[in-house]
C-alpha cells in the first residue's frame, strides 16, 4: 500500500462518485473522464502498460467523447432531476449500493486468495501481447473485429432510422 496507489485510488473514487451525483451532465462527463484517467494510472502501476494506454485511447478518447456528444444532442429536464435526489427511491438505490459493497468487502477480507505474498512484476512487452493475440487468441481477435464492425453499422442504422422513415 504505497502513496501512489492511495492518491490514484482516492482520485478515482472521488471522481466516480462525483460523476454519479452531480446535477450538471457536462460536469458528470468531465468527472467520468478523470475516473478513466485514474484507472489508466492504476493499470500503469500494475505493470500493464498496454492496457493502461488502451484505456486512455478507448475510454478517454472515444467513450467520453461519445457521452459528451449524447449529452449535447439530448436535453435533460433539471426540474425532475432535482426532485429525484434525496427521494425514497434514491435512498433505496444508495442502500443497495452500500449493501453490495459490504458483501463484496466481507468476501474479499475473508478470502485466503488475497493473503498470498507479493511477487515481483514480470516484464510484459507489446511483442509478447501481439504474439499471443496472433497465436492463442486469434479466434477471439477475429470475433471482436466482427463485433465492432457489426456494432458500428448497427449504431449508425439505429441513430439514422427516424430520418430515413420520413
Amino acid at each position: 500500500m504505497d502513496a501512489g496507489f492511495v492518491v490514484f485510488a482516492g482520485l478515482t473514487v472521488i471522481s466516480a462518485s462525483a460523476a454519479m451525483s452531480l446535477r450538471n451532465l457536462v460536469h458528470c462527463a468531465l468527472c467520468l473522464t478523470v475516473t478513466f484517467a485514474g484507472l489508466a494510472a492504476l493499470y500503469l502501476k500494475l505493470n500493464a502498460q498496454f492496457v493502461g494506454l488502451a484505456q486512455i485511447l478507448v475510454y478517454i478518447g472515444a467513450v467520453a467523447i461519445l457521452i459528451v456528444f449524447a449529452i449535447l444532442l439530448t436535453r435533460s429536464d433539471e426540474q425532475t432531476l432535482r426532485a429525484t435526489i434525496l427521494s425514497p427511491a434514491w435512498w433505496v438505490g444508495v442502500l443497495v449500493g452500500v449493501a453490495v459493497f459490504c458483501a463484496l468487502a466481507a468476501a474479499i477480507c475473508s478470502s485466503a486468495l488475497a493473503k498470498r505474498p507479493a511477487v515481483p512484476p514480470t516484464p510484459v512487452t507489446v511483442e509478447n501481447i501481439g504474439d499471443k493475440l496472433m497465436t492463442t487468441y486469434i479466434l477471439p481477435l477475429e470475433v471482436i473485429g466482427l463485433l465492432l464492425t457489426a456494432a458500428m453499422i448497427g449504431a449508425v442504422i439505429i441513430a439514422m432510422q427516424e430520418r430515413r422513415s420520413r
Partner: peptide, 14 residues
C-alpha cells in the same frame, strides 16, 4: 468493489 458499488448505485438512482 467500491467502484462497482458506486456504478451500481448510480445506475439504479439516476
Amino acid at each position: 468493489a467500491l467502484l462497482f458499488s458506486i456504478g451500481l448505485a448510480g445506475a439504479v438512482t439516476r
